[in-house]
Amino acid sequence: MKLSVNGKEHDVSVSDDMPLLWVLRDVLGLTGTKFGCGMAQCGACTVLVDGQPVRSCVRPAAAVEGRAVTTIEGLSLQGDHPVQRAWAEVDVVQCGYCQSGQILAAAALLQAKPKPSDADVDAALSGNLCRCGTYQRIRSAVHRAAELMEG
């Protein structure tokens, strides 16, 4: 099957049911997208498909053929997407494992709603678990990213 990931075309030969997550990680070597639960409970595997967030652990790669997949590696060239800059400024990360998913979920929110309220942040990002408890800083960083995007 043909996959478009971070603007690059890939031709991969995998079983029809192989989740996008494992194609990204084990076939394409893009390990920034994380495995946390395998059942869309934790959000660590979040990627963007045509700009919309998708839990790649429960989406067969075959289902995204012909669509543009963006992973954390492709969110920005220099790690300087406004969400990433805000994350650094607010010192969000701890162990860091969930943060790829958090950042992509936040980017999707800001795409859909450039000036989110606290309730908007809670509604968009409560699908992403963080065992270290960085939630409070995530809230702040999303608002900061909104400011940075406004310029």
Partner: peptide, 8 residues
């Protein structure tokens, strides 16, 4: 916004 049903 940011968590469409289609996410999961």
């Amino acid at each position: 916004p940011g968590l469409p049903c289609s996410t999961c």
